[in-house]
Simulated scan of single mutants.
Amino acid sequence: MQGVVHFSERMLQHFKRVQALIDQLDPEGEPEALTVPGSARPHDAVIVFTGSFNPPTTAHIAMLQEARRYARQHEPMHLYAAMSKHTVDKESVERPLLLDRIVLLQKLLRRRVPDTGILLFNRGLYVDQAEAVQRSFPEVKRIFFLIGFDKIVQILDPHYYQDRDAALRDLFQQAELLVAPRGNDGEQELEELIQQPQNRQFARYIHPLPLNRAYRDISSSQVRQRANRYQHEVPQEVQRFMRITRAYEPPLRQADGSETDYYGERMKSLAALMHRQPASRR
């Protein structure tokens, strides 16, 4: 039955460990980064791909695989996917849970991009995340953030800053950017962007990363909005999660007119299991 939730004791303990890390992160506190259990401690040079991974798509995997190739061609680098904790309005419920997304991503990376770790941040801005890495892992000597072309346009847009150049100097003192194409915007468009007079001083911190054109238009938001239509744009592991949990589907109307929210029931069951008191031993 689809509405019944089953977890092995081992998986339940893993959920508890990950949730404990999420609870530890304070969005109002000093910048902080944590590693998910099973991830190596960051050191030397790192490539960090921050996203919501809601859900993880084939484009996410392709970008990480390209980043791994980049790392192997340059100095020894360690690759991480990352998510940031944000405060959800009390009237809304995050779907799927950050906990579910982390555990799903971990399973996916283990099979598709081995040796890729997962970081958790308490802040969302790249400059704060760079500081978090340096504060939490002083062994890290160099930081690269992996982003898409649309994000570099946003980062360089003066409308987002009171003093753009000061903010960008602060960012690039701590980190560099690897930029993957989106849509028709490739390496030439990136070069033209960073060679504009107002951007040229930051060009040496921004590096192109190739990405097969087949992945450039894939969007997590499209998958969320029309899950059935875009399921071919997510890996099989994610397809299975979506099918079993119905995390991106509306409540299912039953023959008697009632509605069943399978993912809502999953959330309740998981919370109850995680807060279950262990049986006392006699």
Rank of each mutant, 00 (worst) to 15 (best):
M1P: 11
V4M: 11
R17P: 04
R17A: 14
R17C: 10
Q19L: 09
L21D: 06
D23E: 12
Q24C: 13
P27Q: 02
E30A: 12
E32I: 04
G38R: 05
S39Y: 14
S39D: 09
D44T: 02
D44Q: 14
F49M: 12
G51Q: 08
P56T: 10
T58D: 08
T58H: 09
I61T: 12
M63D: 09
Q65R: 15
Q65F: 02
A67E: 08
E75R: 14
Y80A: 05
Y80M: 14
K85Y: 07
V88N: 05
K90S: 11
K90L: 09
V93M: 12
E94S: 12
D100T: 03
L104A: 05
L104S: 06
R110N: 09
R111E: 15
F121C: 06
L125E: 11
Y126H: 12
V127Q: 10
V127H: 06
D128R: 05
A130E: 11
S136P: 01
P138M: 04
E139V: 01
K141D: 11
K141E: 10
I143H: 04
I143K: 04
L146Y: 03
P158M: 12
H159T: 14
H159N: 12
Y161E: 10
D165R: 06
A167M: 11
F172E: 11
Q173K: 12
E176H: 04
V179R: 00
N184P: 06
E189H: 07
L190R: 04
Q195A: 14
Q195G: 10
F202C: 10
F202L: 12
H207R: 14
P210Y: 01
R213Y: 05
S219P: 07
S220N: 03
S221Q: 11
Q222D: 12
N228I: 00
R229C: 04
V234G: 05
P235V: 02
Q236S: 07
Q239P: 01
F241Q: 02
T245H: 08
Y248S: 08
P250Y: 07
R253F: 00
Q254V: 00
D256S: 01
E259V: 03
D261N: 11
E265D: 14
K268R: 15
S269C: 13
L270V: 15
A272P: 00
A272G: 01
L273A: 15
P278V: 07
R282I: 06
